[in-house]
Design a protein around this nucleic acid. Structure first.
Lengths: 104, 104
DNA sequence: CCCATAACTAGCACATTCGCTAAATAGCTT
DNA sequence: AAGCTATTTAGCGAATGTGCTAGTTATGGG
């Protein structure tokens, strides 16, 4: 599944922010949201399937961990767009400077 | 509206990538997609309302431009999460190094 | 072995999204 | 003013997403 789709939901972004601070089990994650466990569990599934988080089982608890790969790719895509935009802006500025120097 | 929600749709991400290369009018944008004009127009509306693009009217054509602000904020949010994650990883590595040096 | 705990999956209702066609709006041209 | 072009808005149906309750699976303790 798609990373951007996974990040589209504010609850899932909060989960990502929580997990940036360290691993958490599903119960601890769910406890911080007003919704019921199964709803959070579904959000966790979306994050799992998009590769944003990994998970492992420790005794009865599922422990979730933020993985940098998927998130990093999305971040790089955004940065690439911004860089293309910025590069064009710089060229325009340089062009205007040249025009000004020639007194155009 | 939310930037991440706006970027969740692949069509809208393609539009963003197109506009990174420069301004385009709605017709030129729509021409590059298999869907009908009104569908693209709705995607453009989402991008407008999320602040990802600005638009102005020139004669009969609406011209769309990618704005760095909204996109940049989203990119920074992602980078912030990755940095928190990375910082924790670095601390862990340093800790393990210290343990090794002490022969733990 | 049976019960409690942790978390998941299944199935339902409601809201939203996505594409479509048809109609409205705005500016240029004659 | 009438019509042409470019684009948006309105409204429809199918598909999807989100939260809920109820039931299932897996592990640990008495």
């Amino acid at each position: 599944m798609d990373v951007f789709e996974a990040l589209a939901d504010p609850t899932r972004r909060e989960i990502v922010a929580m997990l940036a601070g360290g691993e958490r089990n599903a119960g601890d994650i769910a406890a911080r949201f007003p919704m019921k466990g199964p709803s959070v569990s579904r959000h966790l599934r979306v994050l799992r399937e998009s590769g944003v988080v990994s998970y492992r089982k420790n005794a009865t608890a599922w422990i979730y961990r933020l993985e940098p790969g998927a998130l990093g790719e999305a971040e790089q895509w955004m940065r690439a767009q911004l860089e293309v935009l910025h590069a064009r802006f710089d060229r325009l500025e340089a062009h205007l400077d040249r025009m000004k120097e020639r007194g155009d």
